[in-house]
Design a protein around this nucleic acid. Structure first.
Length: 500
RNA sequence: GCCGCCAUGGCGCAGUGGUAGCGCAGGGGCCUUUUAAGCCCAGGGUCGCAGGUUCGAAUCCUGCUGGCGGCACCA
């Protein structure tokens, strides 16, 4: 075991010490281990594709750069596989090119190099660059993890994601697909005349959804702020302001448990359309999901085929009746009886629930998880939809959720623009909050006052981008579609929140 | 927050009370057409941390830390 470097940190393992020794030795020889300019003429993938077909034949002069994946030395000749984002090319170095050969002796897997030479095809039919000049661009002081199998230790994968991504092109592909999906969502919205906006993430009152927020504090203002749990109330203020089609794609935060489907910070898309309604939101929703599927498919993903078909539209009351035999409309007049029947089905209920809440809990706990095919579930109880307009039957809201594979993917409604009713319904939420429901929405007077100036009737939608990406790419865990998922910070030691 | 499983060299793993091992990576050597190249040699470990039981602990017990999965909460 080598001594610990000055300033702390873990002791250097043999491999680490050796790489450091090589870097310093090269510097002694006047070869900088880092920080040389190099301008590739071809990507590794291009070089590989453009190599001559015939064994032994030579092609164009090229300059390529990339990271060393493998080195095979065989006496007077050596082969090194070098890769970049585009692919891989073999470098062929022979003893006659003395400088390159002696530099290669000091190189390790993981080092980033540039190579100049002619394209050719080796005797065993491998596209190669016959190296004339080899240049070290960045010495790697640490051995790469997971050279053969990729990084499999989940802790390493998430804590040091760059190693995971570096060692596994498939993993990188998911994030290219994610980027394409988000880009497609943006295109669909922009084509339809929606304007992208940015609204506060630090909010004095975290409204627009049912969730526990993160709390923070601003020193100069000596005021508490919350990280937003939804974007809704600010986007609706913009509808009041005269912008008619707005959307935001942004990070949103909920102070709740972690699971393969929940990360404390996640990406939410919300869009609002003045004079829109439930139909226009269904239309938009379907277009966004299908745009996402096409975008990902063009990068090799295989989205479930059902997502490309017309989604079903089914009332919640009907789904609940079909699945459980629970007849909400029949029981509506007798909430006590309704609660008893729900509990008999094994449904957990809050204290003193109204009929709407009972119906919703039965749906949420017993029915939603069983929905497989993409379905627009419509007719949510108004009681659990405090920001949505009531339907012709005032017990129900003009609202839909898109459910696929038992999971809610999007949530939309015809927005409530009656300031008097909105005030009442938010006050009801506030009362529930006071009696202990931590997730009931707080009362935002400023928002209600905005509505009092007149908000056009509007359709609005929220869509969970991470879950859409999971569904379209087939990822099993939300951590697989987040570059840096939230983990418990490590107090000290490897891969944690080291500040030194 | 609760329950279960896991933690052994840089990476992947074996080792269930008696001398800590294997493969890859790294070091030294041989090899001018290799493909996770091959062959020879020599290294590398406070077995996650802290206690306890025992003549003796990687192994058994307790606590802690971290991860994964499930439950609860939620999207």
């Amino acid at each position: 075991m080598s001594p610990a470097p000055p300033g702390g940190g873990e002791p250097l393992s043999e491999a680490l010490a050796d790489r450091r020794r090589k870097a310093l030795a090269l510097r002694e020889l006047g070869i900088p281990p880092w920080g040389v300019d190099f301008h590739p003429t071809h990507t590794c993938g291009q070089a590989n594709d453009q190599a001559p077909e015939e064994i032994g034949a030579h092609g164009d002069e090229v300059a390529v750069a990339g990271r060393l994946l493998r080195i095979r030395r065989s006496g007077g000749i050596a082969f090194a596989d070098c890769f970049d984002e585009s692919g891989r090319i073999q470098l062929l170095v022979s003893r006659e090119v003395y400088a390159a050969m002696s530099l290669l002796r000091e190189l390790d897997i993981g080092d980033i190099v540039g190579a100049k030479g002619r394209l050719m095809r080796s005797r065993s039919d491998q596209p190669s660059v016959q190296v004339q000049e080899l240049i070290l661009l960045a010495k790697s002081l640490r051995p790469p993890a997971g050279k053969h199998r990729g990084v499999v230790d989940p802790e390493l994968r998430y804590r040091r994601r760059y190693l995971d991504l570096l060692s596994d092109p498939q993993r990188r592909l998911i994030f290219k697909q994610r980027s394409a999906i988000v880009s497609a969502l943006r295109s669909v919205l922009e084509e339809r005349g929606y304007m992208e906006v940015e609204t506060p993430i630090l909010q004095p009152i975290p409204g627009g959804g049912d969730a526990r927020p993160f709390r923070s504090h601003h020193n100069a203002l000596d005021s508490d702020f919350f990280l937003r749990i939804a974007i809704e109330l600010y986007l609706k203020r913009l509808l009041v302001s005269g912008f008619e089609r707005v959307f935001e794609i942004g990070r949103t935060f909920r102070n709740e448990g972690l699971s393969p489907r929940h990360n404390p910070e996640f990406t939410l898309l919300e869009a609002y359309q003045a004079y829109g309604d439930l139909d226009s939101m269904m239309d938009l929703c379907q277009a966004m999901v299908q745009g996402a599927c096409s975008a990902a498919a063009s990068l090799g993903a295989e989205p479930p085929g059902e997502l490309m078909q017309q989604f079903a539209v089914t009332p919640m009351v009907q789904l609940v009746y079909q699945t459980t035999g629970f007849d909400a409309l029949e029981l509506w007049q007798a909430p006590g009886e309704m609660g008893v029947r729900a509990r008999e089905l094994g449904v957990q209920l809050p204290v003193d629930p109204g009929p709407g809440r009972i119906l919703f809990e039965v749906y949420d706990q017993l029915v939603e998880p069983t929905i497989r095919q993409p379905t627009f579930v419509v007719g949510h109880p108004a009681e659990v939809s405090p920001l949505a307009r009531r339907g012709d039957d005032p017990r129900f809201a003009k609202r839909f959720e898109l459910v696929v594979n038992g999971r809610e993917l999007a949530n939309a409604f015809s927005e409530l623009n009656d300031p008097l009713e909105q005030r009442e319904r938010l006050l009801e939420q506030a009362r529930r909050r006071q009696s202990g429901d931590e997730e009931a929405q707080p009362f935002d007077l400023d928002f209600v006052e905005a509505l009092e100036h007149g908000m056009p009737p509007a359709g609005g939608i929220g869509l969970g981008v991470d879950r859409l990406v999971m569904m379209v790419t087939g990822a099993a865990s939300i951590r697989d579609v987040l570059l840096f998922p939230t983990l418990r910070p490590q107090p000290e030691g490897d891969g944690g929140s080291r500040t030194l």
